[in-house]
Design a protein around this nucleic acid. Structure first.
Length: 718
DNA sequence: GAGTTTGAAACT
DNA sequence: CAGTTTCAAACTC
């Protein structure tokens, strides 16, 4: 199994696994203990897709629809071209909150926002509160999504059989293909699916949650909480092969099945044995990740060529379960989803962004590098990944078994993948980025699947505003095929360097100008315009192996990338050593990896510690001094006045009663508030909250003044 | 670019 | 905990 070995996991200290988000936003299942198999019926348990909206939250969202779903509790949101669908969390009786249908065409699974009545009836007939996914004669019934430690079952009942009824499993000859996804909430993964010969991968408990798609056994289907997708056999008479495929520990579940063009391919395979996929790992840096997630295997490079599989990566992290479905229009040549038969077969985009903890995480299978272009935006904690066009993708990574392999593609027409998950903290940070895009998801008519990345530089001012994790930005031009999605994966940096993908969620606050070339940028660089924090430069470590805090990369919990270091161990190739070093550092100082003053990235200011400097000779006037950096940060606030003013103009100008003086006054108020926050050394999040609060006050004042002026005007008949 | 300075990290 | 050493970044020439 390619999951992080117990040994490796054991190296992970609790400190780095416990996230502050979890600490601050306690979740009933947020910790490893909670992930035990004992199910709970607590709906309040947030999922990745949760976007808790507290009374304190201030979000400027132009997309009411997305926001609405965001505010929904644990849920899975599937976005289509214009609508988001939320799948609510899973209780034993939980059901999908919004009906949707999945239609398959051209070997693709398409998620449609409409739920056909037929499907609904089928669901009723099944006696389950299931969601019906229609697929050209096949139906998928999604009954529930298992909570942590509870199985998620994808069931594919035969047409003749009652939906939702357990089918005989383990038999590849079984006419009723069933997909059962079992999430591993606890330390042990129970082979709920009783297919013979299937091996269940046991994941390291505290962090990984495994989704398996083993063959379904009737007994397993009886599990209290299940996510069941029932598919009726293709009317065309293709006997569905129920071969179970590999359990991809951690997040990816795949099944391969020979299928007709109109057959749903939620993983089908000729191979009846569960396979592990060694060699493919997705590493999630424990340092930056708020969640306890580490490494998962992705795909097997050595899969049986006969396998016709479609990878549907599903990440169930921690106590939370998120199913992000990447979608593309059927017409789109790009088929993100790919066969898992080979490592290359898995398209990056196909991966399901899954999150654990309260933050968004994205898994991006690296197998086919050509399909993914990583873009590092200096100063941004988000990693932007560009998905190549369908044509490019298909040509590059598609397995030659196109004839038989039917990649599973979930389509939306526009925004391919979006997990509108925003941690509570992030929501509070939602700032006026809003000018054109909804905080979470903005859809646009697009024909090609793209995952984030501004093709053109973003406005200079953008750095000052948050892009909530999972945010999908609509292209500026409505007719453009380009869509952008913020991939809050901080450690996706080694996409082209290794087969590993490091993932980490973060609440980035600054996003500097986009850069189309990912390459030579500092791994975590800061834009030239960004002066609030020391620019992330490639380290030059020579003796520390980049495993000491001397190394900025390491100190920031990041991998070295494009650095000038020698004998670098700060990479996934030396993950073991790296983890040991991390543990050592944390043993020495539990706060070792918390950003220092001035070094912390925006959005994680709450993690900053206020350790002062010990300057002796520099007089705190050199960059050696952390305080000096802090001072620069304060100066930066003032320097942003122009930017702020622009935003205010855009935001308030439509209102005729907002005069230039009003704008200036508002701007000044906000800046003063920012300065106050800085002077009082408020954490970034708090500072943002204060500023937003001040903005609210300003707006209230403006509105009141406008109302009064109107009244006065009316009184004098003007 | 080489050498120096500096302060944090690591070590004793 | 204090002193020393190591280290890499910042700085100077």
């Amino acid at each position: 199994m390619d999951v992080v070995s117990p040994e490796l996991n054991s190296l992970l200290p609790d400190e780095i696994m416990d996230t502050e988000a979890i600490e601050e936003i306690p979740h009933s299942q947020s910790d490893g203990s909670a992930s035990q198999s004992e199910p709970t019926s607590d709906l309040s348990v947030p999922m990745e897709t949760d976007a808790p909206v507290s009374s304190e939250s201030l979000s400027i969202c132009s997309n009411a629809t997305s926001l609405e779903h965001i505010q929904t509790a644990p849920s899975i949101t599937i976005s289509t071209s214009s609508t988001l669908f939320t799948i609510k969390p899973a209780m034993a009786t939980s059901t999908l909150t919004a009906p949707f249908a999945i239609s398959a065409a051209n070997h693709q699974i398409i998620l449609n926002k409409l739920a056909s009545s037929q499907a609904s009836e089928a669901a009723k007939a099944a006696g389950t509160p299931s969601q019906v996914i229609k697929q050209d004669g096949q139906k998928l019934l999604v009954t529930a999504i298992g909570k942590t430690g509870q199985p998620i079952v994808l069931q594919l009942p035969h047409t003749g059989s009652k939906p939702g009824v357990s089918q005989t499993s383990g038999d590849t000859k079984s006419p009723t293909p069933q997909f059962k996804v079992v999430t591993i909430g606890g330390r042990e993964l129970k082979p709920v699916v009783g297919s013979t010969g299937n091996q269940v991968t046991t994941l390291q408990a505290q962090q990984l949650k495994t989704v398996q798609i083993p063959k379904k056994t009737p007994a397993s289907s009886a599990a209290p909480i299940k996510f069941i997708i029932t598919k009726t056999v293709n009317s065309k008479g293709l006997s569905p092969q129920t071969s179970v495929t590999p359990v991809i520990p951690g997040r990816v579940m795949t099944q391969t099945q020979a299928m007709s063009p109109k057959t749903i391919t939620l993983s089908e395979s000729h191979n009846t044995t569960i396979q592990s996929f060694p060699g493919k790992k997705i590493a999630i840096s424990p340092l930056k990740s708020p969640s306890k997630v580490t490494v998962v295997s992705v795909a097997s490079p050595t899969s049986n060529p006969s396998q016709k599989s479609v990878a549907l990566p599903v990440n169930v992290a921690l106590s939370q379960q998120i199913l992000a479905v990447q979608q593309s229009t059927p017409a789109s040549p790009v088929k993100v989803a790919t066969s898992q038969s080979t490592a290359q077969s898995i398209k990056p985009v196909q991966s399901v962004g899954v999150g654990g903890g309260s933050q968004f995480k994205t898994i991006i299978p690296l197998a086919t590098q050509p399909n993914v272009q990583q873009i590092q935006v200096p100063g941004s904690r988000f990693h932007y990944v560009r998905l190549v066009t369908a044509t490019t993708a298909s040509s590059g990574g598609q397995p030659s078994t196109v004839n038989t392999s039917k990649p599973l593609v979930v389509n939306t027409g526009t925004v391919r993948m979006s997990v509108p998950v925003v941690q509570a903290q992030t929501m509070k940070q939602v700032a006026p980025k809003p000018l054109t895009s909804a905080p979470q998801v903005v859809t646009a008519t697009q024909n090609q699947q793209r995952l984030i990345m501004p093709a053109t530089p973003l406005p200079q001012i953008q750095p000052n505003f948050n892009l909530p994790p999972g945010t999908v930005l609509a292209s500026a031009t409505g007719g453009s095929n380009v869509g952008y999605a913020v991939v809050p994966a901080q450690y996706v940096t080694q996409l082209q360097q290794s087969q590993f993908v490091t993932l980490a969620s973060s609440s980035g606050f600054q996003a500097s100008s986009s850069i189309q070339t990912q390459a030579k940028l500092p791994y975590n660089g800061v834009s030239a315009t960004e002066t609030t924090s020391r620019p992330r430069k490639p380290c030059n470590c020579t003796k520390s192996q980049c495993l000491k805090l001397y190394c900025d990369c390491f100190a920031n919990g990041e991998f070295c990338n494009n650095c000038n270091c020698n004998n670098c161990f700060n990479n996934l190739e030396h993950e073991m050593d790296r983890l040991k070093a991390i543990k050592t550092c944390l043993d020495r100082n539990p706060e070792a990896f918390k950003p220092k003053i001035g070094k912390g990235k925006e959005g994680e200011s709450d993690r900053r510690h206020s350790k002062g400097c010990n300057c002796k000779r520099s007089g705190c006037l050199k960059n050696y001094c952390e305080c000096y950096e802090k001072k620069k940060f304060a100066e930066h606030l003032a320097s942003n006045q122009g930017v702020l003013y622009i935003y205010l103009i855009v935001f308030l100008l439509p209102y005729t009663f907002v005069t230039k003086e009003v704008l200036e006054a508002t701007c000044e108020c906000l800046l003063e508030q920012a300065k106050r926050a800085d002077q009082t050394r408020q954490p970034q999040a708090e500072a943002e909250r204060m500023i937003l609060e001040e903005f609210g006050h300003c707006l209230m004042s403006i509105i009141a003044s406008a109302g009064k002026a109107k009244a006065d005007c009316a009184s004098i008949n003007c």
